[in-house]
């Protein structure tokens, strides 16, 4: 049974739509000339975002635009934003309270299902418009959407013209997300965008090397991972067991964009970073770029060489091959989805 009345949900939904429609008009001009995409050396930017709810929709839009400006000034080709990027917009109709601690799971589920559609639409339109204006391939972070009645956490990628190129629903939602109604993404092949072999996965998907194997099997070389880690305390140990670890064993370039700060009672920490197999970094650390602090806003960028990655991949495959089919058939017979 619903914990929030239909009337309340409708009023909140309408109020949010009114707020969102008052935002800045979508840009139509192109401020940067059309540049061909490089095929070998790609400059990547990753955003670290303060997820604090915003009182005004324009604050959110303008902050997003500043990151696009920064990436364009830095001559980036690809820009990655964090998980749950537009959830801060709920601050325009709700106080930045400790809702996560004070509301029941059922109430949170009802609110998310009701408010996700207008937030998703606004996020989608704004990120598409910004991608087009700044001529940047953009992994737009992630947002909640209702698809055939299912609440999914979806990341969308736009090309330089602002056209959607691929999307990926989170395959491995956290326990809290599942309590709030988010269901695992459907069984489908990971999408890969040419010419770089760009793919994407959402936050906890990077806990599983299987995500990277599946993407690599489809031709992916770069994996963008928007995150929003609900960890009040940042430690390198916990941070390194995600994307950083997986690209050591499944050689790819991993790009992490992180949401940080307080979001309705959740405390988020994380760093934006660009990670590679240790053999690809000059100091052997496997870290090409990483923000300095795990809270607050930041922007990092680095150039990656795809021919160098191809070489590392070939050597890795020869030395550490994927086990034979019968071994893996047996491994993944252990049961259905957890």
């Amino acid at each position: 049974m619903s914990q929030v009345s239909f009337a309340t949900r409708s009023v909140l939904n309408m109020w949010l739509k009114v707020k969102l429609n008052r935002d800045l008009p979508l840009p139509t001009s192109r401020v940067i000339s059309n540049m061909p995409l490089p095929r070998e050396r790609v400059k990547i930017g990753a955003v670290q975002w303060d997820a604090q709810p915003v009182g005004q929709v324009q604050q959110w839009s303008q902050r997003i635009q500043r990151f696009f400006e920064q990436a364009a000034d830095d001559h980036c080709h690809l820009l990655v934003f964090p998980e749950y990027l537009p959830l801060s917009l709920l601050g325009s109709i709700m106080p930045p309270s400790n809702a996560v601690q004070t509301l029941t799971d059922d109430t949170i589920r009802d609110l998310l299902r009701s408010l996700a559609p207008p937030i998703y639409r606004h996020w989608y339109r704004w990120m598409s418009a910004m991608s087009r204006q700044y001529r940047l391939t953009t992994v737009a972070g992630s947002a909640l959407m209702v698809d055939h009645g299912r609440l999914l956490n979806v990341t969308v990628t736009f090309d330089q013209s602002g056209t959607e190129s691929m999307r990926q629903a989170k395959w491995h939602p956290l326990v809290d997300e599942q309590r709030w109604g988010v269901v695992p993404g459907p069984i489908a092949a990971p999408q890969v965008m040419l010419p770089w072999g760009l793919s994407s996965a959402v936050c906890n998907d990077a806990t599983y090397y299987e995500t990277f194997r599946m993407a690599q099997a489809q031709g992916a070389r770069l994996l963008a991972v928007p995150i929003a880690d609900p960890e009040a305390r940042y430690t390198l140990g916990k941070a390194r067991r995600g994307c950083f670890s997986q690209v050591q064993d499944v050689p790819m370039v991993g790009v992490v964009a992180a949401a940080t700060g307080r979001l309705f009672g959740l405390r988020l920490t994380g760093k934006a970073g660009i990670y590679v197999p240790s053999a690809m970094s000059a100091d052997g650390s496997g870290v090409l770029a990483e923000s300095l602090h795990p809270v607050g806003e930041s922007f990092v960028s680095a150039v990656v060489s795809l021919p160098e990655l191809d070489r590392v991949q070939r050597e890795h495959r020869a030395q550490f091959p994927v086990p034979p089919g019968e071994f893996l058939d047996a491994l993944y017979q252990f049961g259905e989805d957890g």
């Binding site: 491995h172 489908a188 806990t207 599983y208 599946m214 994927v322 089919g325 993944y332 989805d337």
Partner: peptide, 19 residues
Amino acid sequence: FPVHQGLRANLYRTQKWWS
């Protein structure tokens, strides 16, 4: 942090990266 509980054997079997 239930890592093993989150494994999606169905998905991996369908999108197998092995031959």
